[in-house]
């Protein structure tokens, strides 16, 4: 009996030890970013960096503000919201059409398959022709150009997400509206839209996260500092200055905050959001 209790105790101790080391591995880099952003340079640019900041300073945050990092912030907000709204505006009717209508020649199936294939494809594959196309339209180095390029990511994604949410709306509700004499468009706006509302919000949040963090297209299609987004600004910071970690971490924290707050709202959709589809 005693041995049995001892092994149970040992098992529990092992469980907590494993859990603790996992949490340390997961959280330490974030802790490191947070504390470094509040340290004085003498505490991080040294062979003996301190585990905790001895004196907390806000100088790095003041510095990045003074140097105008808010411009990159504004650019990122504009691109992110722009691409999300454009995507939802186009994807919602498309998802509704795909869920509710029949199409000739299996057009809907082919379309959905293609969209899924595109979502899986490496973005760099499309970069060269997109570059020449944007150049031809005079949209290189313009936020509008990036908003259009980002549809490669957000449109396939939004169509698939919204398709699921639209399918969850019982068709009887729409039939009732049709019997009452409402047109297709009115049914869509007055009945379906409110029911899909939460799904629309979740999709929007994921699209915002996706575009907020996007790197490669921003790198290739924006070459002038005044149109940089946050990830591009950070990448220049990383590669050009060896150990200016205080301001770098300060900007890392600032640029991540909006995303972390938003992600709190979509916890229960995470799986659907990141893996597209399966039950």
């Amino acid at each position: 009996m005693n041995i049995w209790r001892a092994t149970r105790l040992a098992k529990r101790a092992l469980f907590w030890a494993v859990l603790l080391s996992v949490m340390v591995f997961v959280l330490f880099p974030i802790y490191w970013m947070l504390t470094t952003s509040f340290k004085e340079p003498l505490e991080y640019a040294t062979r003996t960096p301190s585990w905790f900041p001895h004196r907390i300073t806000f100088q790095h945050y003041r510095e990045i503000w003074k140097e105008g990092a808010y411009r990159y912030f504004i650019n990122t907000v504009l691109v992110s919201l722009g691409s999300t709204l454009l995507s939802l505006g186009i994807a919602f009717p498309a998802a509704y059409g795909l869920a509710r209508f029949r199409f000739p020649a299996k057009l809907d199936l082919i379309f959905l398959l293609w969209v899924l294939l595109v979502r899986m494809a490496p973005p760099v594959v499309l970069a060269i022709p997109l570059y020449t196309t944007l150049q031809g339209l005079g949209l290189l180095n313009k936020l509008t150009g990036l908003v259009i390029a980002y549809q490669v990511y957000t449109l396939p994604y939004s169509i698939w997400m919204l398709l699921r949410f639209v399918r969850d709306v019982p068709i009887e509700v729409e039939e009732a509206a049709a019997i009452d004499g409402a047109s297709r468009l009115r049914t869509l706006v007055a009945i379906v839209l409110p029911l899909v509302g939460p799904g629309l919000v979740a999709t929007a949040i994921f699209a915002v996260i996706m575009t907020w963090n996007e790197f490669i297209y921003a790198l290739l299609f924006l070459r002038r500092p005044e149109v940089f987004t946050l990830p591009i600004h950070i990448s220049h910071f990383i590669t050009e200055y060896e150990v200016l970690w205080g301001p770098l971490m300060a900007i890392g924290i600032t640029s991540s905050l909006p995303i972390l707050i938003l992600s709190g709202y979509v916890q229960k959709h995470l799986l659907r959001g990141f893996a597209i589809s399966f039950k």
Partner: peptide, 15 residues
């Protein structure tokens, strides 16, 4: 535990 995948890859690379 899910935290890390929310950050921008560039922020992660900086850290």
């Amino acid at each position: 535990v899910i935290f890390p995948m929310m950050f921008s890859t560039m922020v992660i690379c900086a850290i």
